[in-house]
Computed example of a mutant assay.
Amino acid sequence: MGPESSSPLFSGSVAGTLRLIFYLALAMVLMVLDHRNGWLWRVRYGAAVVVEPLYRLAGLPAAGMHALGVAFSDRQRLTEQNQRLREDLLLANAKLNRMAAVAEQNERLKELLDTRHSLKLKVQLARVVGVDLGAYRHRLLLDVGARQGVQPGQPVIDAHGVMGQVVQVLPTTSVVMLVTDPDDAVPVVVERTGLRTVAYGSRDGGQLTLPDIPRAADVKAGDRLITSGIGGRYPPGFPVGEVQAVAPSPTGMFLEAHARPSADLDRSQDVLVLHDLAAPAGPPEPAAPAGPPAELAPSSSAPAPARPAGPPPAKPAPAAGTPR
């Protein structure tokens, strides 16, 4: 390359050398001034004020893409978190409802336990596993049967009163006829006046009917009905129901009362089966005839009379049905 194309700053002339020395001296002066007084910092600060908007404008596309990515990721994360929170809330509500049901069941069991201790009778705890509440049948199915010692005719109660009696026994289950069944009848006594009568089941939705009350009897709404013990089926003193209304019967010769059962027939899940009080269904068997007096009895030396051939005479079968 020729000398005409070289930079004049580094030319070999005296003018070029002087310019280089001037620039170096100026640089040194500026460095000293910047170090002591911070003049160049002010210049850089002013330049940054002018240049910074340009940097921000140039970085807007990248910042916008980053903001969109963060927004979408935050939205997805919030959606997932909301879903988890909803599931946790449903699970917590389910557990809370379960705890309330368990607390209610424990309260019922406590009431049954208190009833058992107060009765001082032999009872058996059973659980309701089936319900048959039709127009003509009010029955329950219990989870105890013949293998657990249950027999037909045993009374069944809950913590509030009489529920009914066992009418059918299977190996592991038993059927209970409720006091509201149209085929059931319970001898009761009005606790306030001592009037004895019979409470029958009805078909009009879980009520008891007392149809044969004398017109002169003192029976009014609010009277409590308890078992009288007549018939030997139910022990005396158990609550049966509470009189709701009293009106003349259709014939006009008697009063007819309607009562609400004391037991929770449609809510009780655990019941007590009374043992020691069950009587066989039907009328009692005839008593054996008394033997001859001592002076008329044959002596031990006399030969015993010959027994007639053939099978012994069969005893009369007890009448079917529930005694009223």
Rank of each mutant, 00 (worst) to 15 (best):
G38E: 08
A320T: 09
S7T: 04
H66T: 12
A15R: 13
A278R: 10
D114N: 12
A217C: 13
R19L: 13
T180I: 05
Q148T: 00
S5T: 04
V198M: 04
G310L: 08
G291I: 00
I21H: 06
L26I: 13
A47E: 07
L133F: 15
P292F: 05
L78S: 06
R56Q: 06
Q124F: 12
K220R: 13
Q105F: 06
A101Q: 13
K95R: 13
P187L: 02
N97S: 14
A94D: 10
S300I: 05
D212S: 06
T197R: 05
Y45F: 15
L68K: 06
A217H: 12
H117C: 04
A47T: 06
A245K: 14
M65N: 00
V43M: 10
R307V: 15
P53W: 09
A297G: 00
S7N: 05
R77F: 09
A304E: 14
D204F: 14
V14E: 14
A317D: 03
A63D: 09
D181T: 03
I230K: 11
R86K: 08
P235A: 14
G229N: 07
G16W: 05
A290M: 04
L142K: 01
G282C: 03
G282D: 07
T115E: 10
N37M: 13
D184E: 12
A247C: 01
P3Q: 02
P171E: 15
A216E: 15
T172K: 10
G149F: 09
Y23F: 12
G164H: 05
I230E: 14
L142I: 14
R196W: 07
R116Y: 13
R84Q: 15
Q148N: 15
L142T: 05
Q154E: 11
V240G: 03
L26Q: 04
P239V: 10
L296G: 03
A67F: 12
G59Q: 08
Y55K: 06
H138T: 11
Y45R: 10
V129I: 15
G145H: 07
L30G: 01
L225E: 02
L33V: 15
V144R: 15
Y234D: 09
Q83S: 11
V32K: 02
A216K: 13
G321Q: 03
G237L: 08
L91I: 02
M253W: 08
A294M: 08
W39P: 01
K110C: 07
V186C: 07
V240F: 06
P289S: 04
A306P: 08
N106L: 13
K95M: 11
G237Q: 11
P305M: 05
L195M: 12
V144N: 03
L40P: 01
V128T: 04
A245G: 01
Q154W: 00
E107Y: 00
V29Q: 01
R267P: 00
Q83H: 12
A314M: 11
G241Q: 02
V273S: 00
A27H: 01
A58G: 07
R42T: 14
Q81F: 03
A27Q: 03
R324L: 12
V14P: 03
